[in-house]
């Protein structure tokens, strides 16, 4: 028995010269570290893909926002360090309101002087990881974020018509997302107009720097409200092309939609409520009104006569 145990220990020592427990712990830690590292960087790349590529490329030229290739070097040339970039990413509006010259320069270069939307989940750690990712992608000959799969084909009247139907909801979006009319208005849309949770899109082309900017925006909308919907129900490239065509066409309408839609809607609601009052009065026309009041009031009237 003792001999067998001694043999077993000797075999183990050959396989695990520093002891089995240490070997297992080391393997476990290495695996966990590697998993965490790969998972983390993939997560950051996915974050960039879903949240940043609507306005930025890395080496693919400017969209609504600047091309982020060499962003650290450009910032350094303007006297800004990594810390400044992190603060800017966390709250772009605050950087602009502080009157910072570089932040104002970035805003001036953006079509329609648009401001980068604040991302509520942008922690210091996340901003730092995104900068690491941008730096790593900058060093590559061609970044995975250098371009987008949007179509740059010229718009046809059929595209505009399809875009209008998709916007209004008369044709459903393939991914199952609610139609644009739910939250956005556009001049000359329909009787009661579009929604107003999001901005009027009549002149969105100007704000996002043309149809290319609109298309990339739709590919990965950066606004948290839109993201909550389109993250799981993305638009198809042909839908994006049609919607960009419709919005390009809508820019010809001139001014954004006025308040006649909400006013008409309110009057409709008020009319419905008044109809409801008339209905309940008619339905309960034989209701018990009171005993004392007609007796006292009737007697008073008789006395007056």
């Amino acid at each position: 028995m003792n001999k067998r145990n001694t043999l077993r220990r000797a075999r183990r020592r050959t396989l695990f010269p520093f002891g089995r427990a240490i070997f297992v712990r080391t393997m476990l830690l290495t695996t966990l570290f590697s998993l965490a590292r790969n998972g983390f960087s993939q997560e950051i790349a996915e974050y960039f893909r879903t949240r940043c590529t609507s306005c930025h490329t890395i080496g693919g030229g400017r969209l609504t926002g600047p091309d982020l290739k060499n962003v650290m070097q450009r910032a350094a040339a303007n006297g800004k360090d990594r810390e400044w970039l992190i603060r800017f990413m966390q709250d772009p509006q605050a950087a602009i309101q502080s009157g910072d010259a570089y932040a104002l320069k970035l805003q001036r270069e953006t079509p329609g002087n648009a401001v980068m939307p604040t991302q509520p989940d942008m922690t210091r750690q996340l901003a730092g990881s995104l900068l690491d990712l941008i730096e790593a992608e900058t060093k590559l000959e061609r970044s995975q974020f250098a371009g987008s799969p949007i179509s740059l084909a010229p718009f046809t009247p059929e595209d505009v018509q399809l875009g209008r139907e998709l916007f209004r909801g008369s044709q459903s979006l393939a991914g199952g997302a609610p139609p644009c009319i739910s939250c956005h208005a556009v001049q000359g849309l329909a009787a009661l107009g579009g929604g107003r949770l999001g901005p009027d899109l009549t002149l969105v082309n100007e704000r996002l720097g043309g149809p290319k900017g609109v298309s990339t925006w739709l590919l990965a909308p950066p606004m948290p409200t839109m993201q909550s919907v389109f993250k799981t129900k993305p638009l198809k490239p042909e839908e994006i092309h049609a919607l960009a065509a419709f919005l390009d066409h809508s820019a010809l309408q001139g001014a954004p939609a006025d308040m006649s839609g909400p006013l008409g809607f309110f009057l409709l609601g008020l009319g419905g409520a008044v109809a409801g009052l008339v209905l309940v009065d008619g339905f309960w026309s034989k209701r018990f009104r009171s005993v004392r009041y007609p007796l006292v009031h009737g007697q008073q009237q008789e006395g007056d006569e």
């Binding site: 739910s182 939250c183 009661l192 929604g195 107003r196 949770l197 839609g261 909400p262 809607f265």
Partner: peptide, 12 residues
Amino acid sequence: VFTPWGSTWYAA
């Protein structure tokens, strides 16, 4: 009235 259409964005 001012941020239509609530039935859709409430659900979404």
